[in-house]
Simulated assay, not measured.
Amino acid sequence: MAYVPVPKDLSKVKTKVAFNLTKRQIICFAVALILGLPLFFLLKDSAGTSLASVVMIAVMLPCFLFAMYEKHGQPLEVVAKHIIQTKFIAPKERPYQTQNLYAVLERQRKLEKEVSAIAKGTYKKGSGKKKRRG
């Protein structure tokens, strides 16, 4: 009797379309073939078989990486986007900033005093900043 391993986390199971490949893998492999084979046959006569095969591999390799590479459930383009964002787009220094709740309450109290002074008619412009003379 044959035993088939069943994964415990079914969210990681991907739907296979044909030849035990996902739709994404089939599309990427097709693009690799469409790019690599004509290039090989064009370069085979002029550059030699060895160089043509190396160029074909170099052209097809990114397609294979996009088809197969996955890190933490994310495909290569998502991982590359995150790397580019953190290395080049986001600021290098991100200082830790807290919101001082006391300062917010102090500003709110000051504004409420000002509004009540305006409502009573005792508000004087510039009275919010008092200068101390010592």
Rank of each mutant, 00 (worst) to 15 (best):
K92V: 10
L101G: 10
L105N: 10
A90M: 10
T86A: 11
Q99F: 15
E70W: 02
Q99S: 11
I84R: 13
L105I: 12
L101V: 11
A103H: 09
L105G: 02
A90Q: 13
V78W: 03
Q85K: 14
L76T: 03
E93W: 02
G73W: 05
E77Y: 13
A103R: 13
E93G: 02
A80N: 02
I83V: 13
Q97R: 14
Y69V: 14
E70Y: 02
P75S: 00
H72L: 06
I89N: 04
T98N: 08
Y69S: 08
A80R: 05
E77C: 02
T98Q: 11
K71W: 08
A80G: 01
A80C: 04
Y102D: 14
P95M: 05
L101S: 12
I83M: 08
A90P: 02
P95W: 04
K87D: 00
K87V: 13
V104R: 12
A80F: 05
K71Q: 05
I89G: 02
H72I: 03
N100F: 00
A80T: 09
P95H: 01
E93V: 13
K81P: 05
A90D: 15
F88E: 03
V104L: 12
L105Q: 14
Y102L: 14
K92F: 10
F88A: 10
L101N: 11
K71M: 04
A103E: 14
Q85L: 09
P75N: 11
P91E: 06
K81Y: 04
V79Q: 04
T86S: 13
T98I: 13
F88W: 08
L76P: 00
Q74S: 03
Y69E: 08
A80H: 01
V78F: 04
P75K: 08
K71C: 02
H82L: 10
L105D: 11
Y102R: 14
Y69T: 11
P75Q: 04
A103I: 12
Q97W: 04
Q74M: 12
K71H: 10
R94N: 15
E93L: 09
P91G: 05
A103K: 14
L76Q: 04
Q99I: 15
K81I: 01
Q97T: 13
K92C: 00
Q99G: 05
V78R: 08
G73C: 01
Y96N: 12
G73N: 03
V104T: 11
A80M: 15
Y69M: 09
P95F: 00
V104Y: 08
A103Q: 14
I84M: 09
F88C: 07
Y69N: 06
P75H: 06
K92S: 07
Y96A: 15
E77S: 13
P91I: 07
R94E: 12
H82V: 06
Y69A: 12
K71P: 00
Q97K: 14
K92W: 06
P95E: 02
I89M: 03
Q74A: 09
Y96V: 15
E77Q: 10
I89P: 01
F88K: 09
T86W: 09
A80W: 08
I89C: 05
V79D: 00
T86P: 04
T86D: 11
L76M: 07
V104M: 10
E70L: 00
V78H: 03
E70V: 01
Y96E: 15
Y69R: 07
I83K: 06
P91F: 01
K92G: 04
